[in-house]
């Protein structure tokens, strides 16, 4: 048990520290790298709670794909810290005011929070014994039966977002030469090549 506790404190500390580094780093690429470390430690915490499937998905989706794209974009940006910090002082009162309002709203929300008494039972019910049913199976059994329509709807929403992004950014350019591999393969010697018997001094 003590090993688990130590591992928990290790992952939790590193996750919180690296999350802090994300917002304090001057260099935006370093910030993304810290963000990746935070994701990774989050996955570690999931493993500790026995949610191995979610942990692996977190690494595959967030670390393996989303953060790569972040890094891609951030590396391409031409960021100048000096120009970004221009006008910092005059915006401070505004920023503090907005932050204060958000904090107050959060406090009101959390203060008035009441957990429904039957919530605990609902949360526990669909969780089968981890020793008997692997995570993956348990999740699949719920997602593809009880929540099938919601699950499919989520997929459709993502599809619409993807199509939208492509439609918005795609532009058709003129004069682009594209390789058409089927045409290249379909070429036959007879269609492309003519053998001419040229008489001497006759020319073609």
């Amino acid at each position: 048990m003590i090993v688990q506790a130590l591992a928990f404190y290790l992952f939790a500390t590193v996750a919180v520290l690296s999350a802090g580094m994300v917002i304090t780093q001057r260099n935006s690429v370093h910030a993304v790298l810290w963000l990746i470390l935070a994701f990774f430690n989050g996955a570690g915490l999931f493993v500790l709670t026995g949610a191995e499937f979610v942990a692996m998905l977190l690494v595959i989706v967030y670390v393996g794909a989303v953060a790569v794209l972040f890094l891609f974009v951030v590396m391409m940006l031409d960021l100048n810290v000096a120009t970004l910090r221009e006008g910092f002082v005059e915006h401070v009162p505004m920023v503090v005011a907005v932050g204060f309002v958000l904090l107050a709203e959060l406090l009101v929300l959390v203060g008035g929070w009441a957990v429904a008494p039957e919530a605990q039972g609902v949360r526990q019910a669909p969780t089968p014994d981890l020793a008997e049913t692997p995570n993956t199976e348990a999740l699949g059994a719920i997602l593809y039966t009880d929540f099938l329509y919601l699950f499919q709807a989520a997929g459709l929403i993502l599809l619409v977002a993807m199509v939208g992004a492509i439609v918005l950014t795609h532009r058709r350019r003129e004069g682009v030469r594209k390789q058409r591999i089927p045409e290249q393969i379909a070429r036959r010697k007879e269609d492309e090549l003519t053998l001419v018997d040229v008489p001497p001094r006759g020319g073609v």
Binding site: V29, L33, I36, A43, E52, F53, M56, L57, V59, I60, V63, G64, A65, V68, L71, M75, P134, N135, T136
Partner: peptide
């Protein structure tokens, strides 16, 4: 239990070594 996913996760992180080196 999730051996295949673990491998997939590790191999998808391999790209960072290369991006970090290049940057």
């Amino acid at each position: 239990n999730v051996g295949v996913l673990y491998l997939f996760a590790i191999s998808s992180m391999g790209v960072y070594g290369i991006i970090m080196a290049g940057w």
